[in-house]
C-alpha cells in the first residue's frame, strides 16, 4: 500500500484518478483506519489530504462559511463564529465518537464515509449545506443531501473528492439543532439522528423549516413534510405532533444490531420534535 500526502488539490485528484477503485482518501482516518485494520478494504494508495490548505481551513463566505473537508470536529467546536451561527452542525460534529476521536474526525470524512448514521449529515442537510467537489473534470457544487446515495455509496465520480462544504448565511431569527439517540452517552453510533433548521418571524411564527433524519433509511433524509408541519405555526402542540408524525412516517429503517424498525421509527419522531423545540428556543434568543 502506498501513502501519499500531496500539497495541492490537483495532485490529490491526479493520484486518485490514477488509482481508480484502488484509491482512498485519508482525512482524519477514524473510519478508514478501522476499515483497513478489519481488512474490509485493501486499497493500493491512500491519499492523505491534510496538507492541502483549502481542506484544512474555515473561512467566512457571503455571510456563511466554507469549511475545509478535513477540518476536525474539535476545530469546528473551537470556532466561535461557526458555533454561534450553526450550533446544530457543530453539536453534531461534537457528538462523533469521543473527545479523542473528535480531534481527528472530519466533516468531509463523515460525509464521504456515507454511513446512513453519520451524525453531521442530517445537520448539514437541515442547514442546506453544499459540498464543493473537485475532480479530473474540475469543480462542481452538489447539495449535501445529494452526496450520499446509499450505505457506503456516494455520487462522487472516479477521482473526485469533496474539498469543502459551504454553510449558507444564517438569517435573523433562525437557528438549527441536532439530536441523536444512542443507548450510551458517547462512543456509539446513532440509532436515530434528527437535525432541524428553522426561521421565526417577529411573532414567533415559523416561516421556514428543514428537518432531516439519520439512521432511518439507506441514507440521511430530508423530510419536507416534517418541516411543512410547523411552518406557519408557533410550534404549538398540534404542529409539533404533526412534525413528529411526519418524521416517523418518512422512516424506512432496517432492523439491525443498533435498533429495530419500530424503535427507530418511534424515536425519530421524538427526536425531531425535541430538536425543533431546541432550534425554536435558539432562534427566539436571537430575536
Amino acid at each position: 500500500m502506498r501513502y501519499e500526502a500531496p500539497q495541492t488539490l490537483e495532485a490529490a485528484v491526479g493520484l486518485l484518478a490514477e488509482a481508480g477503485d484502488n484509491g482512498r482518501v485519508l482525512a482524519g482516518g477514524t473510519d478508514l483506519l478501522v476499515q483497513l485494520r478489519a481488512e474490509t478494504i485493501e486499497p493500493e494508495i491512500v491519499v492523505d489530504v491534510k496538507r492541502i490548505t483549502e481542506l484544512r481551513t474555515v473561512s467566512p463566505e457571503d455571510g456563511g462559511f466554507r469549511i475545509g473537508a478535513a477540518v476536525t470536529g474539535a476545530e469546528l467546536g473551537e470556532h466561535d463564529g461557526l458555533r454561534a451561527a450553526w450550533p446544530g452542525v457543530v453539536e453534531a460534529a461534537e457528538l462523533i465518537g469521543s473527545t479523542q476521536i473528535q480531534g481527528r474526525a472530519s466533516l468531509g470524512g463523515n460525509l464521504c464515509n456515507a454511513s446512513p448514521a453519520a451524525d453531521t449529515v442530517p445537520a448539514l442537510i437541515a442547514a442546506d449545506a453544499v459540498a464543493s467537489i473537485i475532480g479530473p473534470n474540475g469543480r462542481r457544487d452538489l447539495a449535501v443531501a445529494d452526496v450520499v446515495s446509499g450505505p457506503g455509496q456516494t455520487a462522487l465520480a472516479r477521482g473526485e473528492l469533496v474539498a469543502s462544504i459551504r454553510l449558507p448565511s444564517q438569517s435573523a431569527r433562525s437557528a438549527d439543532a441536532y439530536l441523536r439517540f444512542i443507548p450510551r452517552t458517547e462512543m456509539d453510533i446513532a440509532v436515530v439522528g434528527a437535525g432541524v433548521n428553522l426561521t421565526l418571524d417577529g411573532d414567533g411564527r415559523c416561516t421556514a423549516a428543514r428537518v432531516a433524519l439519520g439512521a432511518v433509511a439507506e441514507r440521511a433524509l430530508l423530510v419536507p413534510a416534517a418541516g411543512d408541519a410547523i411552518v406557519g405555526s408557533t410550534l404549538d402542540e398540534a404542529a409539533l405532533s404533526q412534525l413528529a408524525e411526519a418524521a416517523s412516517a418518512a422512516c424506512r429503517p432496517i432492523d439491525d444490531k443498533r435498533g429495530t424498525k419500530i424503535y427507530r421509527t418511534k424515536v425519530a419522531g421524538v427526536l425531531a420534535r425535541r430538536a425543533a423545540e431546541i432550534a425554536q428556543t435558539r432562534a427566539g434568543e436571537r430575536a
Binding site: 405532533s241 413528529a244 408524525e245 416517523s248 419500530i262 424503535y263 418511534k266 419522531g269 421524538v270 420534535r273
Partner: peptide
C-alpha cells in the same frame, strides 16, 4: 433493559405526543 425493551414495556408513550 435496553431502550427498545423499556419503550415497549411503557407502551404507547412514544408516539411523539
Amino acid at each position: 433493559m435496553s431502550p427498545p425493551k423499556v419503550l415497549e414495556a411503557v407502551g404507547g408513550a412514544a408516539n411523539g405526543a
